[in-house]
Write a protein that binds this DNA or RNA. Structure first.
Lengths: 171, 171
DNA sequence: TCTTCCATGTCAGGATTTTGACATAGGTGA
DNA sequence: TCACCTATGTCAAAATCCTGACATGGAAGA
């Protein structure tokens, strides 16, 4: 109460809207909004699109792996997966020989839908990239990664092998 | 307008996890996760904290303005505001002389709670900032803003020009 | 003055997401 | 073999958020 500043701000700013976290959230919100709008025309939600995209590039991912890749909980991804399966965009075996994880795959219709939606999403991505100096892109990606990892990041989807995420799981 | 050939990726990447949007979402998810965890110990959610912080720096904001500032809809912010009001952290008049917007203000308890939670959040912010080269911060903020605005941004809470924080005109 | 338009606050309904919990499958070390 | 641990899939309940809709208050223009 006496001291209104228990902790020194990371960088000088009297206005919360100057903080990194706020800017990050703003950019993410703008992206989410743009994607929501664009994907609605294709009958897809953002998590659904993310799921399709991940499965296209890495077929056979399990529910839990997709959840980590799309930054949602296993439970949420489970719902998404059911919807996608009902719509006939993905397929998943009812059982498996070894282990418990059920590998998911895109169907022909799923790939078709993905191709259509991808154009819209890539256009958005291009809008973002074009908005900043070309030389900055690499640095921006690096910085975003650094921040994410510093925050404990996400168990994530390491590109090489599904290996051992072994971090704190969201759920 | 629609070229049938697949839209060229904004930058070369066979892996979706290389795209700007994905990295942005990852960083935002990491931030959200860290804030969720930290704020839970203070009995606050992220939107609640955002609301308190905004009200501390710009007292008298209305529901709709807070919604824009916290990147949620008016309806969502309305729920948040009710909760905060029930908890005695903010106050809002039942009626107003002029106009329809009801100006909200922090209570003593609200300010107290905010001060406690702020320490945790600022620590997170410092973790992020410390994770990247000092010289890059300004450029990062600029780039995030550029991307957000290129995407149509958010109706937003204009920082500089429009309206003085204390006595914004119409409200 | 009157009409039109926009912004706001609010209600209702549904969709999405999360938290918490449980059972199963596989690996590890005693 | 057995106990222990981790990861996974799933169910149930609650919380959160959004879409759609409506009524009110104020400003701009005819």
């Amino acid at each position: 109460m006496e001291d209104r500043k228990p902790v020194a701000p990371p960088h000088p700013a009297e206005d919360i809207t100057e903080h990194v976290g706020y800017r990050l959230k703003r950019a993410a919100a703008a992206l989410r909004g743009a994607m929501d709008k664009a994907l609605r025309e294709h009958g897809l939600t953002v998590p659904q699109y993310a799921c399709l995209e991940l499965l296209d590039q890495r077929p056979g991912l399990s529910n839990a792996e997709l959840a980590r890749g799309a930054f949602v909980t296993r439970q949420s991804m489970n719902v998404v997966l059911r919807g996608l399966q009902e719509a006939g965009l993905i397929s998943r075996p009812a059982t498996t020989d070894h282990g418990r994880a059920l590998p998911a795959h895109l169907t022909a219709r799923g790939r078709e839908r993905l191709d259509a939606a991808r154009s819209a999403v890539y256009a958005i991505e291009r809008t973002m990239v074009d908005a900043l100096p070309q030389r900055r892109l690499a640095a921006l990606l690096t910085d975003l990664d650094r921040m994410a990892e510093a925050l404990g990041g996400w168990p994530g989807l390491s590109r090489g092998g599904a290996g051992c995420p072994a971090g704190r799981g969201p759920g």
